[in-house]
Design a protein around this nucleic acid. Sequence first.
DNA 1: TTGCTTGCAAAAGGTTTGCATTAAG
DNA 2: CTTAATGCAAACCTTTTGCAAGCAA
Lengths: 154, 154
Amino acid sequence: MHTHLEEDRQLLYQNALDHLKGKGIRLTDTRKAILYYLIGSPNHPSAEMIYRDLLPSFPSMSLATVYNNLKLLVDEGFISELKVSQDSTSRYDFMGNEHPHIVCERCGAIEDFMDSHHPNIHQAIERRTGYQVTRSQLVVYGLCPNCQEALKKA
Amino acid sequence: MHTHLEEDRQLLYQNALDHLKGKGIRLTDTRKAILYYLIGSPNHPSAEMIYRDLLPSFPSMSLATVYNNLKLLVDEGFISELKVSQDSTSRYDFMGNEHPHIVCERCGAIEDFMDSHHPNIHQAIERRTGYQVTRSQLVVYGLCPNCQEALKKA
DNA sequence: TTGCTTGCAAAAGGTTTGCATTAAG
DNA sequence: CTTAATGCAAACCTTTTGCAAGCAA
């Protein structure tokens, strides 16, 4: 559900490139690689993971460049930053539409899932709190199927 | 709704003390002060804020002690840790029952609010994801009423 | 008395910044 | 040619850790 099909990936990638070009943002090789990587990754990678995975292709790339670009892509609205309990690093997520995350408290996996009535609550929240709501993040914690199995055996 | 009445505060405080004592955890002055502070605070303070506010009463207290005790209180289930976007520090929250938070993206305020049907979704999520759900955190971002006013004037 | 807890300072992450250099447009 | 973006290293901020001293039980 979060792993985009190859055609989708190309489309989203081209879309993003067009947007960036339109704003006069330069399309460097590293920037394009980071963006492309994020569109294809279902794993909500950290800056470090992205760096490690791209380093073979860009041996001179620095971690700071990864951070710079992550910030830029967050600011441009292409990716979102996700901080979860028991993890001191930020995780990143390419996704236009809002969706909840579910985190395994044992192995640290993060997955997306869909929740139909989740965005609908914004209006109710505005009425109740007086806030002007821009977005919401639902993070669910638990045990993933793999870890449930592993614990049964132990 | 999160600021406990004085009587509630005393009750919750005594409850927590009893629990800690029952587990053989020592009740030091700083530990008690941090716990008591958190029960009465509606502001979701960071470790630094707690440290700053308690320092006048405990001039020799160190920040490490605040962190130590926050970790202990999280482990014992009395408080929860909350990480929000655009804030590099952890915020803490005394609260037995689960409840959503709403964060002002302009001034950084964090407030609690109640959401009746929020806990009910756990079963549906378990069915859909295969995860064994233990808890969930809903964080809503937006503009608080004060900041809405401030922006109107500007 | 026992050993958990504290205070201090140093270390350990993770992220940001300053600056000279490189390269996109 | 201009200036945004990169790579590098140092700085920064938050949190954790090691250890001797202190104090709750």
